[in-house]
């Protein structure tokens, strides 16, 4: 379970935070650090893309989790927007964008067309930009451009 929830960045951040707090403030053990936006994460973002069952013809899965900073509680009903350069369109095209909501476990999952390498890397874009929490833009890389899924995880802090 923790494997699913943790990104490398999250693991390093929360791990080092936990290490630091365990020395200084032993009482505050729960310290899930907020996810920071990645460089280039907001590129070609189109605010307000509609919530969809699937982007285009599908065949590729984007998934992840949304949790609250501090206690790490899953956040339900959070709107995550997803876009990428795919077999069906460029990043800038409206048809390459779609949004979905997290379930009670804070998980989201949206089918979309196959992501193909663009601007030198096979990558996707995700955004949390609903206002209640601070905005976060992610730009995860695929290990291989042949992968048919990609995941990214959000830990949000209040705006």
């Amino acid at each position: 379970m923790s494997k699913l929830l943790m990104t490398r960045r999250g693991l390093i951040a929360s791990g080092s935070a936990a290490l630091a707090t365990s020395w200084t403030v032993p009482a505050r053990a729960a310290g899930v650090a907020p996810t920071r936006s990645m460089r280039g994460g907001s590129n070609n973002y189109r605010p307000g893309a509609p919530i969809v069952d699937r982007i285009g013809g599908g065949g590729f899965w984007m998934s992840g989790t949304v949790r609250r900073a501090g206690d790490g509680a899953p956040l339900e009903g959070q709107r995550i927007q997803i876009w990428a350069h795919t077999t069906e369109g460029h990043e800038r095209d409206a048809r390459s964008h779609g949004a979905t909501l997290t379930n009670a476990k804070g998980e989201f999952r949206l089918e979309m067309p196959q992501i193909v390498p663009a601007f030198g890397q096979a990558h996707g874009h995700l955004a949390y930009d609903s206002g209640y929490f601070k905005t976060v833009f992610l730009r995860p890389l695929m290990d291989s451009s042949r992968d048919t899924s990609l995941s990214a995880h959000f830990v949000l802090e209040p705006a």
Binding site: R39, G40, S42, N43, N44, H90, A118, F119, G120
Partner: peptide
């Protein structure tokens, strides 16, 4: 051509703020 294709990616590259190591 790359600027027209994706302006923010080219601006990131030219300002040395791109996430891509080759830029």
């Amino acid at each position: 051509g790359l600027w027209i294709t994706s302006p923010p990616d080219m601006i990131d590259a030219l300002t040395f703020t791109s996430p891509t190591p080759f830029s």
